[in-house]
Amino acid sequence: MPRRHVEHLKAEDGPTSRQSGADDVVVKLGTWLDNVRKRAAELPEQRRTDPDALGIRW
């Protein structure tokens, strides 16, 4: 996944939704994954295995 990859998620009504009235939530998934890759050696074992369980290629 390229670093510039973003996901646009539909905001849902609930305690975690933003009150700004925006319909979409933008998640910078590529940036997050790149940061996790760079810090992989510092992460606990569980945090390193979670992406594997989701089928994400490191």
Rank of each mutant, 00 (worst) to 15 (best):
T49Y: 01
V26I: 14
K10I: 05
R18E: 05
S17T: 14
G30N: 05
V26Y: 00
G55T: 09
E45K: 13
L9T: 10
S17I: 01
A22C: 06
E12W: 00
T31R: 06
H8G: 09
E7Y: 00
L54V: 11
H5I: 00
N35Y: 09
R39I: 02
E12Q: 14
V36S: 04
Q19Y: 07
W58L: 15
S17D: 13
R47F: 15
K10M: 03
G21D: 05
E42H: 09
A41Q: 12
R4P: 00
E45M: 05
E7C: 04
W32Q: 05
H5G: 00
R37N: 05
L33N: 06
P2M: 04
D34P: 02
K38M: 04
R48H: 05
R48M: 04
T31V: 14
W58T: 10
A40L: 08
W58C: 07
E12A: 15
V6Q: 13
P51E: 02
W32M: 05
D50V: 09
T49S: 13
M1F: 11
P2L: 04
Q46Y: 10
P44Y: 02
G55D: 06
D52E: 15
K10G: 08
A53K: 10
D52H: 06
Q19I: 08
P51M: 03
L9E: 14
S17K: 08
A41S: 15
K10T: 12
Q19K: 14
P15W: 00
D50K: 01
